[in-house]
């Protein structure tokens, strides 16, 4: 017997007019896995999430969620998943309890089960003492936690988290990570989309790197980092162009490029390579100001694969909206 995947996506494509937001992507997610979608805003992450949660119909291709086809039985799919959207979807004029209670009714939970489960999820996200307060009095972090609680209320098999920490400060973000790790320990399958590299690195079992609607790499964070050979050196000098030419002509390292005012390239072993590089620079008459050596991060992987840094953009501009703007 073949093991059933929690999610199976088969050449999914979504076009908005002439703009292709999602370009024939295929992948599968195993049960209990924490699967990450990493990419800049506008890469197609939210659009993919909207299609998998049946809010948008794909232009072509399809997907199976818990073995159910998203096109054939969208309502069944919706019953078995929980979703935390990128933009807030709580009712601010209702209390935390009412938001959860209404959700439970919409998912057809009997009254007793609803009550018990509301208590559980509020405890999980540490909002128990706030249950009767109106959501409009909540901070951004509290709202996100309440949304996660709501997404879990009907005990879904899969939880979709679309940029769950967007717009939160660094401290609150790390706090959110501990909640997400707790969920994973409970065995729920999680699909997390994010444009924060450290977030994907810290949480995910496997990461699909998506850019311009295409999956350009899919592996564990460790294996992805191995795509960048060895270590990364960043050399700041008075003449970056000349330094870049030197690295390339003398074959001092691979994948050299200028980034943030320094020349960045991959070497097998940084500490052994540095003296030779310094010598070569001296001979060429380039004055080095600083040298930085680091083990590859997901950011290096992303730069290697796309040739650019991940685009940091302001919150709220979801790629779905951009897709629509392209379409009209």
């Amino acid at each position: 017997m073949e093991k059933m995947s929690a999610i199976e996506v088969i050449s999914l494509t979504k076009k908005f007019g002439a703009f292709t937001a999602v370009d024939s992507i295929s992948f599968s997610v195993e049960e209990g896995e924490l699967f990450g979608f990493l990419g800049p805003n506008g890469a197609g992450k939210s659009t993919t999430a909207y299609i998998l949660t049946t809010l948008l119909k794909p232009t072509s291709g399809t997907a199976k969620i818990n073995g159910i086809d998203i096109l054939q039985s969208p309502e069944k799919v919706r019953k078995s998943i929980g979703i935390v959207f990128q933009d807030q979807t709580l009712d601010n004029r209702l209390s935390a309890y009412d938001n959860l209670n209404i959700h439970g009714m919409l998912y057809n939970m009997p009254a007793a089960a609803r009550k018990k489960r509301i208590k559980e999820v509020l405890e999980l996200v540490e909002l128990s003492e706030w249950e009767n307060k109106l959501v409009k009095t909540f901070s951004g972090g509290m709202r996100r936690r309440l949304e996660i609680a709501r997404g879990l209320l009907h005990t879904p098999k899969i939880l979709f988290l679309d940029e769950p920490t967007l717009g939160l400060d660094a401290h609150t973000r790390r706090h959110m990570w501990t909640y997400i790790k707790k969920l994973k320990e409970q065995g729920i399958t999680i699909v997390l989309s994010t444009h924060y590299l450290e977030e994907a690195d810290a949480l995910c079992d496997r990461i699909a790197i998506i850019d311009h609607g295409k999956i350009i790499a899919l592996d564990t964070p460790q294996n992805l980092k191995k795509l960048v050979g060895g270590q990364v050196l960043s050399i700041k000098s008075q003449d970056n162009e000349k330094m870049l030419g030197l690295v390339n002509s003398k074959n001092l390292g691979a994948n050299a490029r200028i980034l943030n005012g320094s020349v960045s390239f991959e070497v097998k072993n940084g500490s052994e390579a540095i003296p030779g590089i310094v010598n070569a620079a001296e001979k060429a008459g380039i004055k080095i100001e600083s040298i930085e050596l680091h083990v590859p991060s997901l950011e290096d992987v992303f730069i290697k694969l796309t040739g650019e840094q991940i685009r940091e953009e302001t919150a709220g501009q979801s790629d779905f909206k951009r897709g629509l703007a392209h379409g009209h």
Partner: peptide, 14 residues
């Protein structure tokens, strides 16, 4: 506009 419609539309509800 405020997002709540998504909560309604994504529920298994006609």
């Amino acid at each position: 506009e405020l997002g709540y419609l998504k909560e309604l539309l994504v529920a298994p509800t006609s």
